[in-house]
Design a protein around this nucleic acid. Structure first.
Length: 921
RNA sequence: GGGCUUAUAGCGCAGUUGGUUAGCGCGCUUCCUUGACAUGGAAGAGGUCACAGGUUCGAGUCCUGUUAGGCCCACCA
């Protein structure tokens, strides 16, 4: 058994343990009426993505919950899957095609989509393999992909239902347009970033006479101006309303209109109106019956309406136009102007507000019950503050643009009758319920044979696909079989908790709540746990472009999956952002090694083959009682912490208990007893306590560090099951040979029972007694350290108790004190007085005297101390001299002076203490 | 512009509903290769809890304000 290596080597265990778990079917979960369900759906990662630290944190949190609940006896289901992320994936595949010299347009839609599928076949499992390396205990048999048949069916069903309810409409509106991806984006997909911009003041001359100055940040859009607007209350312009202006460059006549929207204080108080390229202008134009004029094409270049700028890139056009205005002396001034501009969340290109025909979901009716669900407390956010963020967004929700001009995704289930479009059947004549909103439009899950209006078969499907989030928002129930009425759906829905990053609160969380209530008539989950964002040490978000990524796989390789998991949780305070650096993973690695070695000690001294445990009071000594009390209180507080999603609290409680209580104190206290008894199999008492505490500790730790706990668990005990299944992989080779045939496969720790706190072991009296014992030991060690007395020198210590009861506490634990402080003799007597040549320690419980006659050379020690004292005195003189130095006092900053003063005080104190010690000796 | 959040030891962070002497990890100093572990053990140094007020018998914790970071949202061109 000495062959158990003194280092935990994760590479010997992690892979084989995981494959064993997987094979054993522990991850799989069917509906089980005898148990309560506990369900989590994974926030689906990008199908072609790779694991980053955010995923590692997110999935560790979920795995902790699911493993914990599984051990508690819940039917614990964790549904994994991936998301097709339309735009991003299409971009990636397009880029790879480009390298081969092919564009998607050349390839054509069908072939291109085939290419994307091929891509997915090749890379789609990467992230899943990586999650397995992390130890994620997902039910992999249920792995879902948003483009799977069932989930696609759900998308169509949802779209058609919403359409029939009148919650989906099509229309020409200003949307966020990415000229690079060439698609519309939702508001959430176009986050605003502060940009250092310029405000251009341009003179628009009257037909006759002076003119009016307008301010704009995007001068190129002036080509599409249809008016200039002023506030009707603005005295400066009141008289000018209705007057005609000549739009420079285009030399077109436009009118000055009055609109309340215009802010008198901004710029010149006069604003150019460009309805096709600005959402506000669009609204204004609508109010005034002005026709929008589009001057840009979808690729961000100026179009035929832009006159001679036709074909020029938008930013090039800006330059040329500014130059031309300057030349014509129409450019009054340019001011610096910082403002927030939308950027494509996939390619970071500057968004163009663009007028186009898109599909929208009406959100207000969906939001109302979703607001109520949170307000009433049916859904709770952890930490609570996210409630406000959620409500604020929901209460100001705007319609959701769901059509995307790309090919990779769910094609919109809308069909157009070309015949009706030609003949233009008026809306009033439309008979079919399904097409009540637009003539010639058929919304259907399957392609209709013929047009219900005119029986024409000339029918074409909409070219666009749906926003990826339109499939993601159905995830909690689409993965369970919806729209089919499955047993899974009935049993596992609603799910228990959603664990996610704050970035996707609006994208995903809020929308899932709305869709759950809309389609399932029930909330999708009751708890939402939002963890922090992973950042580097300087506080920057980890991202590829910043090059500050710490690759989780590299960490797993260098430290172990357990170390990664434990470390990342330990530095994640609830909902706070996580600041990472590589060194931080040493916490977990060291802890795994510590518990490995503690187990190694237990195994080496207790022996394999121990079964059961007898923890009767009569067999227990005070140390046993103490550790059992601490254990049971730890079980209670750890469980409570997990219940409140206090992951790092639970972890640090375990860390303290295992490392400090169990290893530092209990194991050290019982060492003499264990060692002298050898590795016999006698039941009862300390040996059983060791096994019991270690087992429970491993169980408590298992959700956090699944691999090392399983490896030890399998090494630990002989095993109930009679199955002759091989031990390969899990037991260390050395142990197999030592234990030989008596060892059979042990049931996995992951399906062992989560410990319950047992009140009968909780003993506050014993705990406080042990504190007194520790106090005595620490005081002796303290003096040893001060006096440089090595542990090999045995001491005699006299203790005079100062309170009733202390005497019996100390004499009951005399063995521990003698062993842990390396004493020859311990005399406890209230009447003891300070002996000659001794050092003392005084606490509220006792006076302690350590005679040093014969232990150390008293005279030499005195000499050593006075020499040291002299050195200190010299230092003090130097410091005090400095403090009297006028030059120093006048010029040094106050903080430095104070530091010097403190230093002087500290030295004085040290000298005083030495004085006393010398006197005592 | 609105909202959220942070400020505690050199660094990174805990600190639950206010309650003894403010904790942990890293780092630092001294000692220790003692039969589980040097990825370890023992001892130690190091804090005006950002600042200013207030509530209270009592404040790191609650309230108000100030300062400095960070994040999110927002259609002032």
């Amino acid at each position: 058994m000495k062959d158990i290596p003194p280092r935990y080597n994760p590479k010997d265990y992690e892979e084989s343990i995981y494959s064993k778990w997987e094979k054993s079917g522990f991850f799989h979960q069917e509906p089980d009426p005898s148990k309560k369900p506990f369900t989590i759906v994974i926030p689906p990662p990008n199908v072609t993505g790779i694991l980053h630290m955010g995923h590692a944190l997110n999935n560790t949190l979920q795995d902790i919950l699911i493993r914990w609940k599984r051990m508690q006896g819940f039917a614990s289901l964790w549904v994994p899957g991936t998301d097709h992320v339309g735009i991003a994936t299409q971009n990636v595949v397009e880029r790879s095609l480009k390298e081969k010299g092919v564009t998607r347009q050349e390839l054509g839609r069908e072939k291109f989509v085939d290419e994307v599928w091929k891509w997915r076949e090749q890379y789609g499992n990467t992230i899943i393999r990586q999650l397995k390396k992390l130890g994620a205990s997902c039910d992999w048999e249920r792995t879902r992909f948003t483009m799977d048949k069932g989930l696609s069916e759900a998308v169509l069903e949802a779209f058609v239902r919403l359409y029939d309810k009148g919650l989906i409409y099509r229309g020409n509106y200003i949307i966020n347009w990415c000229p690079r991806c060439q698609t519309a984006l939702s508001d959430e997909e176009a986050p605003h970033q502060d940009v250092e911009g310029k405000l251009y003041y341009i003179l628009y001359p009257f037909k006759e006479g002076e003119g009016i100055v307008v301010a704009t940040t995007r001068p190129e859009t002036m080509l599409g101006d249809v008016a200039v607007a002023v506030n009707p209350k603005d005295r400066r312009y009141k008289k000018l309303i209705g007057k005609k202006l000549i739009l420079p460059i285009m030399e077109k006549e436009i009118e000055i209109i009055a609109d309340d929207f215009v802010d008198k204080k901004f710029g010149t108080g006069a604003v150019k109106v460009t309805p096709a390229h600005d959402p506000n202008d669009f609204e204004m134009a609508k109010r005034h019956g002005l026709e929008p004029l589009r001057i840009m094409s979808p690729d961000g270049k100026m179009n035929e309406n832009a006159g001679r700028f036709n074909g020029m890139d938008r930013f090039e056009a800006r330059k040329s136009i500014v130059a031309e205005l300057e030349e014509k002396k129409l450019l009054i001034k340019i001011e610096k102007h910082d403002h927030a501009v939308g950027h494509c969340y996939r390619c970071h290109t500057v968004i163009e507000p663009y007028l186009s025909l898109q599909w929208f979901v009406k959100m207000k009716p969906l939001a109302e019950p979703a607001i109520e669900a949170v307000k009433s407390g049916k859904i709770k956010f952890y930490p609570k503050r996210w409630t406000k963020v959620y409500l604020n967004w929901m209460e100001n929700i705007r319609d959701w643009c769901v059509s995307r001009q790309i090919w990779w995704g769910h094609r919109i289930p809308v069909y157009y009758c070309e015949n009706c479009a030609k003949t233009g059947i008026p809306k009033s004549k439309v008979k079919s319920q399904k097409s009540k909103i637009y003539a010639g439009i058929i919304v259907s899950k399957t392609k209709p044979e013929k047009c219900p209006e005119c029986n024409s078969t000339n029918i074409k499907q909409d070219e666009d696909v749906l926003d990826t989030w339109f499939s993601s928002w159905l995830w909690p129930f689409s993965t369970l079989g919806w729209p089919e009425k499955t047993k899974d759906l009935e049993y596992f829905y609603p799910t228990s908790v959603l664990v996610t990053a704050p970035e996707i609160l609006f994208f995903w969380v809020a929308r899932m709540i709305m869709s759950g209530i809309e389609f399932k008539k029930d909330i999708p989950f009751s708890d939402v746990y939002i963890h922090g964002t992973v950042r580097d040490v300087t506080g920057k978000k980890m991202s590829k472009s910043l090059g500050n990524i710490i690759d989780p796989l590299e960490i797993i390789d260098g430290f172990s999956a357990d170390a990664l998991r434990f470390s990342i949780i330990s530095i994640t305070a609830a909902g706070q952002d996580v600041f990472l650096s590589k060194e931080k993973f040493e916490i977990g690695r060291n802890f795994a090694n510590k518990i490995w070695n503690a187990s190694r000690f237990v195994l080496m001294n207790i022996g394999l083959g121990r079964q059961g445990s007898r923890l009767e009071a009569k067999d227990l000594n005070i140390a046993d009682k103490w550790i059992l009390s601490r254990l049971n209180r730890t079980i209670e507080v750890v469980t409570k912490a997990l219940k409140n999603y206090g992951f790092n609290e639970a972890e640090s409680l375990l860390y303290d208990f295992i490392w400090h209580d169990f290893c530092d104190w209990y194991v050290e206290m019982v060492k003499p007893e264990i060692m002298t008894q050898g590795s016999g199999l006698k039941a009862g008492g300390t040996k059983d306590v060791l096994i019991h505490v270690l087992e429970d500790s491993l169980k408590l730790l298992h959700p956090f560090m699944p691999f090392v706990t399983e490896a030890i668990w399998q090494n630990m005990k002989p095993l109930q099951s009679e199955s002759p299944d091989s031990l390969g992989g899990i037991l260390s080779p050395s142990l197999v040979s030592v234990a030989g045939e008596c060892i059979k496969e042990r049931e996995s720790i992951m399906v062992s029972k989560w410990p319950e706190p047992e009140k009968r072991y909780v003993n506050k009296q014993v705990e406080s007694d042990i504190e007194v014992v520790k106090e005595a030991i620490v005081n002796i060690r303290n003096i040893r350290s001060d006096m440089n007395i090595p542990y090999s020198k045995k001491l005699t210590v006299n203790i005079a108790p100062l309170k009733a009861g202390i005497e019996s506490i100390l004499s009951d634990s005399m063995g521990y004190i003698k062993a842990l402080a390396q004493l020859e003799n311990l005399i406890i007597d209230a009447k003891l007085k300070k002996p000659k040549s001794s050092l003392s320690a005084v606490t509220e419980n006792f006076n302690m005297y350590i005679p040093l006659e014969g232990v150390i050379d008293i005279d030499a020690e005195k000499a050593r101390l006075s020499k040291k004292q002299d050195a200190l005195k010299q230092q003090l003189v130097f410091t005090e001299k400095k403090l009297k130095d006028k030059n120093f006092m006048d010029h040094a900053p106050e903080s430095v002076i104070n530091a010097e003063k403190e230093k002087a005080e500290a030295i004085k104190e040290q000298i005083r203490r030495m004085e006393k010690t010398i006197k005592d000796l």
